[in-house]
Design a protein around this nucleic acid. Structure first.
Lengths: 362, 362
DNA sequence: CTGAAAGCGCTTACAG
DNA sequence: CTGAAAGCGCTTACAG
């Protein structure tokens, strides 16, 4: 019985470098060299090999080449944000990062593997992860403390890791992050300049969320610099989600402490707060000014448009990939802090300010 | 000179299945079988192998196993949304999909490679893509027509592809999508029930955007079923972005045709329209009711909360991965349409309706 | 149920 | 500048 139908696919034998070698009239080794751009191959030979490869739609088998050369040619992106029941509530900010990281990888000739596995749960899966990729990029607003010991263990095993987050001493791995402290500082300076005196902070400012903590530090510093005594009753914990922001704002309103501004530790929190204020019939910005952090694309389209701190996701992605590759090549790498930029929009505009433009940093 | 410092890393020899074999006192072949869960291995042997593997932190080398078994163990996710200058303006809806696709892959033991390369540009990169992964999942609200011929070519070369999009005859590949037609139908039915008579449609309803086109078809059908003659002046092209939605709404307002509702082809468009209406001091919903499509997480947090059509991203992701795997295994696969659900929120509520619950479909 | 052996498709010293 | 050959770490008939 002649095989037909489902077996059809087997007839098409895989094109290998030997096929190209034969067609180009060279050895298989030379094909490999030519295709990898080795300087040892004469230009004329290379041309012939390239043409042969093209004509047979040949591409190098990644598995074979990686096996042989002992590099995966792949980086892994691990979202370790604390899981929400609903997958969808991931910070859009990280989606921007995803874009820039992907492009940076492509530019560098690496593939990008992606995973949402919580690093907190399945030790084995993480480890497997570390063997499939040459290195790992960590992304998330999750609880750092629960991850720290794990990170240290992975690092000790030689896994190459860079993380987006708070650039601080004693981080378990190379970290790239924005200048959260000065971001917090400029937001609160701006709110004070607008005449706000009782500024609430929405976000968990504990050691578990070092980025929020840094933003809060900047906030406190700005208050003190203006002779305003911080009031603990004006800080309400929140994770980075609209829902959490909404709840935090509701909490704050229930406390019946007066406040004239909200500085939310992230745009999602700010947008949740906006919804809560709205539901209570409170006018933004005239009764309560609001500012966020991240400058997600939506920030410019909520009502009113949200004052926030822009992080340069493009540069962040480039730098994460660049740092990881240096780590992989055993080059020198250090953690780095990226500049940020205050973006003033209507949600905090009580007085005239040069609109749309960045606020000068102090 | 004894090597030190940077060479340190070479001392740590890679753990292979031979090491496990020795430790467990079996052959390397048995290690492989035990770890892959072959029924040919006695439970007792398996236990011993597992323990040995664990104690040496051994994990199977993916490159080697894939090379041998001739499968990449990897699926690729290709975003082919028409590129924006700024990476960040990708539809959050697809981020939800990304989450569910990732999890579905993990469940099935596949890795997920991700790429934003526009399928329209680099033929070679695409082809390479297709060799690195066992199959490709296509995601995007981009212009289908420009991609069709390319898809057909890839399909003909035996590349396994499934696409998220409009389920229609003559699609170049297996397609999973939601019921856009009935989605459009129920939105417009709902708006009419609320008393709206002149309903604008914001979105490119041409063959280039078949999903929008289907939503528009449903919209027209609902109008006609209620004896309302569609007015071409009330359809304005828009791509799926807030900016484009804002512009479209501005355009619509400039036309000075009266309208009492906007049905936006996506939530991003709707949110842009909301911003435009706002800027013009037009009250939503009482002067103009607004509805979108997708139910992105932000839809519930804009002001007012947005009526929209929910697509089940969880099921969508499962189904995309499942279909692709069937395709890879040469099983029978057909395109499938997923149910959708109208979600009524304040942006379209002119009369009393059972709040928060789904609107009964007609 | 287990082992010995072949071989997946490359890369890279080594030798010329 | 090129070729012959070894070998990366697995999986899987094949034989027992």
């Amino acid at each position: 019985m002649a095989a037909r139908g489902p077996c059809r696919v087997h007839y098409k034998k895989k094109v290998t470098s030997f096929d190209i070698a034969e067609l180009a009239g060279v050895s298989q080794a030379t094909v490999s060299r030519a295709l990898r751009g080795s300087p040892d191959v004469s230009e004329e030979t290379r041309q012939r090999v390239m043409a042969a490869a093209e004509s047979l739609h040949y591409t190098v088998d990644k598995n074979a080449s990686n096996l042989r050369s002992k590099s995966a040619g792949t980086l892994a992106l691990l979202f370790f944000e604390d899981p929400t029941p609903d997958d969808s509530h991931i910070n859009p900010f990280f989606f921007s990062m995803l874009g820039s990281i992907t492009r940076a990888c492509t530019r560098q000739g690496y593939d990008l593997l992606i995973s949402f596995q919580e690093i907190g749960r399945d030790w084995h899966a993480d480890f497997a992860e570390s063997k499939k990729a040459d290195g790992i990029i960590l992304l998330g607003y999750g609880d750092y403390l629960t991850h720290t010991s794990r990170l240290e263990k992975l690092s000790r095993q030689g896994t190459k890791i860079v993380s987006w987050g708070a650039v601080m001493p004693n981080q378990p791995c190379v970290t790239i992050g924005c200048d959260n402290y000065n971001g917090g500082l400029s937001v609160t300076n701006h709110l004070i300049e607008q005449g706000c005196k009782r500024i609430a902070f929405l976000g968990d400012a504990s050691r578990h969320f070092p980025e929020f903590q840094e933003r809060y530090r900047g906030h406190l510093q700005a208050l003190r610099a203006h002779g305003i005594e911080p009031d603990e009753a004006l800080q309400v914990d929140a994770e980075s989600s609209q829902y959490s922001g909404q709840q935090a704002a509701d909490n704050l309103l229930a406390r019946e402490h007066k406040f004239d501004a909200i500085f939310a530790a992230s745009d999602l929190i700010a947008i949740g707060a906006l919804a809560a204020l709205n539901a209570h019939g409170i006018d933004v910005p005239f009764e309560v000014a609001v500012a966020g952090f991240d400058d997600i694309p939506m920030a410019n389209f909520v009502n009113p448009p949200l004052t926030t701190v822009r992080q340069d996701t493009r540069m962040a992605g480039d730098m994460l990939v660049d740092s990881l590759l240096r780590l992989i090549h055993n080059d020198l790498v250090t953690s780095r802090m990226l500049p940020m930029q205050l973006v003033v929009r209507r949600s905090s505009l009580l007085r005239e300010v040069a609109t749309g433009s960045a606020h000068p940093q102090d």
